[in-house]
Design a protein around this nucleic acid. Structure first.
Ligand SMILES: [Zn+2]
Ligand SMILES: [Zn+2]
Ligand SMILES: [Zn+2]
Ligand SMILES: [Zn+2]
Lengths: 134, 134
DNA sequence: CATTAGATGAAAATATTTTTCAATTACGTA
DNA sequence: TACGTAATTGAAAAATATTTTCATCTAATG
């Protein structure tokens, strides 16, 4: 849970200006994880669409934000901690889990230099299983 | 490595017609894994764009094909075996590995019913590491 | 406060995907 | 084999999504 100030500091440190638009996007991102462009736009009235795209691109390139594919268009989230997503195929809900169930040592042993990984788990959430929802 | 006939048989079994267009798309898919729409189109001259989209949608819905996001637009591959992808951030190459390094038992224990998962590993391939490519 | 490289946004261009609907066809049945 | 029909196709248009352009503006520096 790095504060917004810390994140802005990193941006500045990389030579980027801390514009009101960028602050607004970061603010929007901190409201909720894995939001769509449309949701973020709703939280950033006053920020032009092009700037939204450019800002999110910049934040992704600098590693401050992750672009996700959970099955229905791009989603974005602050890249604060390492976690993964469970997507419920009944209700569409997305939840996160922190415990990383991936072991990439065998890839390293094969000569691949692992920088990052992304894992998505699909199924039915506890609520849908109990409620008998298909 | 199921043969095309087997795959077509599954389609028929589900009540879908085995049209020349569908056969062409399956043929194209069997030429190479994780192809883009553009690549598949190149292998299916004579199949209209709309039919390409519809056929790939159908194949994904029936589980015969997987739609992938490896970072640069959708890619498609026959869903024959369970495997994952390593994406080299230097040369852009995509390679597959069969040994699954994911253990989802802890999610099951939490009440989530796991149906499937997808894992992508990002880094540098052996070739790029040795060649010193950044 | 002046300077300036970097940033913004409106409009246009491009790319991607979906919808519509009339024409065609695969396939079961006679 | 011929027929009937529901499923399928594809051209065009529409809808969506993303990128490019370029004139204007501004954050940061001194
Ligand atoms: Zn659910
Ligand atoms: Zn992980
Ligand atoms: Zn490589
Ligand atoms: Zn796996």
């Amino acid at each position: 849970m790095a504060s917004l100030e810390t994140t802005v500091g990193k941006l500045r440190g990389l030579g980027y200006k801390a514009t009101p638009q960028r602050l607004a996007v970061l603010e929007a991102l901190s409201a909720e994880q894995h939001q769509s462009m449309e949701e973020l736009r709703g939280r950033c009235p006053g920020v032009g669409l092009v700037t939204m795209y450019r800002t999110l691109d910049l934040l992704c390139e600098t590693g401050l934000v992750r672009r996700l594919d959970l099955g229905a268009g791009p989603r974005y989230e602050l890249a604060e901690d390492h976690h993964h997503h469970m997507i419920c195929e009944s209700c569409g809900g997305v939840s996160e889990f922190e415990e990383c169930p991936v072991d990439t040592r065998s890839l390293t042993n094969m000569g691949f230099e692992v920088n990052a990984h992304s894992l998505e788990v699909y199924g039915r959430c506890a609520g849908c299983v109990e409620g008998g929802r298909r």
